[in-house]
Simulated scan of single mutants.
Amino acid sequence: MSHFAEHPSPYLLDEAPEALVASPNAGQPSYIKDHRQRLRSRFRQGGAEPMPDYELLELLLFRAIPRRDVKPLARALLDRFGDFNRVISASDTRLKDIDGVGEAVVTELKIVEAAAQRLARAKVMQRHVVSSWDALLDYCHTTMAHRETEEFRVLYLDRKNVLIADEAQGKGTVDHVPVYPREVAKRALELNASAMILVHNHPSGDPTPSGADIDMTNQIAAACGALGLTLHDHLIIGKSAELSFRAEGYL
């Protein structure tokens, strides 16, 4: 008896043999094939805007899971994480907690996350920050708003306020990230930067600064002042809003 006869439904997880990856419709039930063709056609004709999150997720999952109906998995992901953005931004570990999610699904989701971040980044790098402020905020939200732990980034600018570097200085827990003011200022000198913008996220979703956030900002501002550097702002990114230290009078 052949291997397939002994195991009539061997592809319950997202991993599929190379033959099926190369020919994803092989052995696929006709109703699944028809549904996928209809969904792809709607996407090509009308774009993503009118599509609900679960259908956009289905389109991604088609590539990772060649033969199975992926709508239940798309629904399960949205039930757990809330929306499309939070699904693709979720950690590998949390994604794999969902029944049916394996390496192939995680890889597809993380490719999309990386592409979204790269597109947003391209709109701000080597651009004048003041004239592209909205794009800068969009980039910060794309890369940081849905993270489950705090991350601290520094945007380094040249004398014309053009963004020349965007660097993660540290990652931490759900409510703390270690930051070293001297290292931030030292890195600015290495890059020949003249100014900087600090950015970090609050996984809680509330961008209100903590006492530690204010103290750390003051320390970095003092270090910048001693070296002739300008600290333009410190942005705290929440789930759907951001707070500017400059606008709120903290700087």
Rank of each mutant, 00 (worst) to 15 (best):
H3I: 15
H3C: 03
A5C: 06
A5R: 12
A5V: 15
E6Y: 09
P10S: 04
P10F: 05
L12D: 06
L13Y: 07
A16S: 13
A16K: 02
L20V: 04
N25K: 09
S30R: 08
Y31C: 08
D34T: 14
R36D: 03
Q37R: 14
Q37L: 11
R38Y: 03
Q45R: 09
Y54Q: 10
L57I: 02
L57H: 03
L57P: 01
L60M: 10
L61Y: 00
R67H: 07
D69T: 01
D69H: 05
L73Y: 03
R75H: 13
L78S: 03
D79Q: 10
F81L: 10
F81V: 07
D83M: 07
D83Q: 06
R94H: 10
D97R: 14
I98A: 07
D99H: 14
D99M: 08
V101P: 00
E103A: 12
E103G: 11
E103C: 01
V105Q: 00
V106I: 05
V106M: 00
I111G: 00
I111V: 14
A115S: 07
Q117W: 11
A122F: 12
H128T: 15
H128A: 14
V129E: 01
S131F: 13
S132W: 01
W133V: 14
Y139N: 07
C140S: 08
M144D: 04
E148H: 09
E151N: 05
D158T: 07
K160E: 13
A165H: 06
K171V: 15
V174F: 13
D175Q: 09
P181G: 01
R182I: 00
M196F: 03
L198E: 06
T208D: 05
T208V: 12
A212M: 12
D213A: 08
D213Q: 06
D213M: 04
D213P: 02
Q219Y: 10
I220F: 01
A221H: 06
G225K: 03
H232E: 11
D233Q: 06
G238H: 08
A241L: 09
E242P: 03
E242W: 15
E242A: 15
S244E: 07
Y250G: 05
